[in-house]
């Protein structure tokens, strides 16, 4: 059976190895700060004990006060999954760092989130709309999107 890595273990390891302390335990996932995402992602991918080589899915969720970006990670070798989250509080122009350099599988998914949810991913190689056309106005999956 696929196990779910407990957020506690993750936080302990990350604090020990990277010295980052502002990581919150959300019960089933960990909440990281926007500017600490990249070092944590690199660490989780390259550490053999975690080996989270596959980024299964990225999701954007609009909670009105903030946007949440959810990263579902998978380690095929350990048959283990884990969830990373980060929050963007800026509603006008929310942005998060792109993880394409770490997990190339994020390329289309980040474009989709920009298209439908309106979260910019900085340093993405090709940050364009993907499902809707270029002059489309607004981002339909936002809760305040009016038809």
């Amino acid at each position: 059976m696929t196990t779910h890595l407990s957020p506690n273990t993750l936080i302990n390891e990350i604090t020990q190895e990277l010295g980052l302390t502002e990581i919150n335990d959300l019960g089933d996932s960990i909440l990281v700060k926007t500017d600490e995402l990249l070092p944590i992602a690199t660490f989780l991918k390259n550490t053999p004990t975690f080996d989270f080589q596959m980024l299964v899915s990225i999701t954007g969720v609009d909670y009105i006060e903030y946007f949440e970006v959810v990263y579902h990670l998978l380690s095929i070798q350990h048959n283990q999954r884990s969830i990373l989250k980060l929050r963007c509080y800026d509603r006008e122009s929310p942005s998060a760092p792109s993880v394409v350099a770490i997990w190339p599988g994020a390329e289309l998914q980040e474009r989709e989130i920009w298209d439908l949810m309106g979260i910019q991913f900085t340093k993405h190689p090709n940050m364009k709309r993907i499902l809707l056309w270029e002059n489309f106005e607004g981002h339909p999956l936002r809760k305040d999107y009016l038809r």
Partner: peptide
């Protein structure tokens, strides 16, 4: 559902 995200294999395989 408040949010229903579909992780579709075809879309991601296109990467």
């Amino acid at each position: 559902p408040y949010r229903c995200k579909i992780r579709s294999p075809s879309f991601i395989n296109l990467t």
